[in-house]
Write a protein that binds this DNA or RNA. Sequence first.
RNA 1: CGGGGGGUGGCUCAGCUCGGUUAGAGCGCUUGGUUCGGGACCAAGAAGCCGCGGGUUCAAAUCCCGCUCCCCCGACCA
Length: 415
Amino acid sequence: MFQTKSFISTLKEAPESAESNSHRLMLRANMVRMLVAGVYSYLPLGYRALSKIESIIRQEMNSAGAQEILLPSLQPLELWQKTGRDELLGETMIRFTDRRGRKLCLGPTHEEVVTELAANFVKSYRDLPFVLYQIQTKFRDELRPRFGIVRSCEFIMKDAYSFDRDTKGLTEIYEKMRLAYEKIFRRCGLDFVSVKADPGVIGGKVSHEFMVAAEGGEDAIFKCKICGEVKSASEAQIEVCPHCREDMEKINTLEIGHIFQLGEKYSKVLGVKFLDEAGKQQTVQMGCYGIGVSRLISAIIEQNHDKDGIVWPAQVAPYQVAIVPVNISDKEILDKACDIHKALEASGIECLLDDRDERAGVKFKDADLLGFPLRITLGNKWLKEKKLELKERRSQISKDIRAEDVLEEVRRYLQ
RNA sequence: CGGGGGGUGGCUCAGCUCGGUUAGAGCGCUUGGUUCGGGACCAAGAAGCCGCGGGUUCAAAUCCCGCUCCCCCGACCA
């Protein structure tokens, strides 16, 4: 991509309304734009990051044996009345009546819909187990949207639902999902912890939430400085480590995922039943597994930035390489920059070539802000010594390389 | 939903207390020139229903009333 042809723009100052680091950086990098409170458009850089995250999630969910589907956002309220969550969710759920007088809502989550679907499918123990998942927009009428896309009224979630014949099966799938989640978050460059949590209105007996430490987080956990034991901080008092008997440290966090062993909560009411080997009717054991996909962008930035801007982990970076010809009016420099761009793109490495007629300083500042893992700079050294500068965003360490070694070097860094 | 703060060019803000020329500054944008490896400089420009509606007044960004939107703290949060 050539920067002069892109929708990319940057701001020196973030709008004052932005509080958290990630939100400020996302606005300065023009990754998202607020339409009204809690409702955001994803612009090219933001959407690219989002797509990268989604594809990591798909890979890991698929390899854990889950199958992707897409459920509707429009849902009949009647379905929610059956499980009693109509009242439980209250005004969080966006509801309306259509012209035929049907009472509908925009799905804040999908347990009801997927359970209804499964009820229609499952007949025999032979149909079990299976896991369905989707990546889809959820709607929640948040009283107070916050921190940009961290808490918004319309957001993208990956929600998975498992169906098995008994508790043993449920526990196995739950464990499998937990491992898949760990892989996903690790690949996203996140330092996370999982803690036992309160299932809340989703329900069930066992649940774990995945948290990342983040200054701009809205949750908190307690962590033991000695043994590293972590505990959910739902109650506000200081916790004492059960092993070390020391006061635990309170850390601000952002919840990025939550998994639940639902048991029969939904399957019983909505009738997901099957016949076992003995011909006896049984109720399916369910689990559900959520990841706040759009929120992950914020989490990643919270954990991967410095004073100059974003420091993208390579796997989720909107582009892997920024190519900066310091002087575009020098044809030799610009031509070579274009050559490199072409060669890297041909090898599947996504590049942003800063072909703007700007001074070097402006380009460097923007490259740092946008945070692509590698920067290739062409300047005087190219003219005099035929050397390019390859600089790693995270370490800010650079080295001079020959043009013919670019691909190899870039690949080595991006591994 | 309770409490607080706000809405003035694309962004950051001043002006409002005490009403009075053509509503300002910095950044950004356009044009020209000088610069040219870490957010350059000079010059000339474009760009504002001063959130919306009503009222007071000879006169309203400024005072009064209503509405609306945004932000922060709290409560809530799958």
